[in-house]
């Protein structure tokens, strides 16, 4: 926990200063998680504000301060999921979606630049985001929380309110779908687009 239970209690009772402290403590972590979940840096702040807004108006429903962190993650997951679903049809241009000719042109244009660490990081980000974009939002969020954010199965149980075995099955299936997309990206074939009813 990044904060005291007493701070949560004070915020629950309507203390705005306590709420401010909670936001300051969790802001960086939540915004980082959101940026990895949605993969669009320009919208991270908006989704983050939505999370803290939901926190403000639903803090009274929190039963015990001990479950605050999984509860905040749950709000984050819901906001990220809403965002991904809302923006599913928004046109998005990534390197991996471009034709070979366009990639060659982009490479030639960028040839003069030095391929430093930031460029490599950018490529990794782009590749992983494209890969995760090929599976359903549910798979994407679950796998990111487990493999990228490093949440344990116990943490995920409290976020998703499902038992460990069901969670393991979901994770396994999500991983298989990402691996399939990964294989397709390695062999140059496009995997089929994610279906809406692909819930695990």
């Amino acid at each position: 926990m990044l904060i005291d239970f007493s701070l949560i209690q004070r915020a629950k009772e309507g203390d705005d200063a306590a709420y401010n402290e909670i936001v300051q403590a969790y802001r960086k972590r939540i915004l980082g998680t959101i940026s990895r979940l949605i993969g669009r840096p320009e919208d991270v702040e908006d989704v983050g504000q939505e999370v803290f807004l939901r926190l403000y108006f639903s803090l009274g429903q929190l039963r015990a301060p001990e479950v605050f962190e999984p509860w905040l993650y749950r709000l984050t997951v819901n906001a990220a999921y809403d965002y991904i679903r809302r923006n599913k049809r928004r046109p998005e241009s990534r390197m991996s979606d471009l034709s070979e000719l366009q990639v060659q042109a982009a490479d030639a244009n960028a040839g003069s630049r030095v391929r430093d660490d930031e460029v490599k990081k950018g490529e990794i980000r782009e590749f992983v985001q494209t890969l995760l974009g090929k599976v359903s939002p549910e798979d994407r969020i679950l796998l990111t929380l487990k493999e990228v954010e490093g949440l344990s199965l116990k943490d995920l149980e409290r976020v998703y309110h499902i038992n460990e075995n069901a969670l393991k099955v979901r994770l396994f299936r999500a991983r298989q779908r990402v691996l399939k997309a990964f294989d397709s990206s390695q062999s140059g074939l496009e995997p089929p687009p994610a279906k809406d009813d692909q819930n695990v």
Partner: peptide, 22 residues
Amino acid sequence: LDELLQSYRAACPDVDGGTNFM
């Protein structure tokens, strides 16, 4: 895939939200 996802975490920059966030 594991390595890729791990390097993805390291490749994502920290986001702080800026001064206008609050």
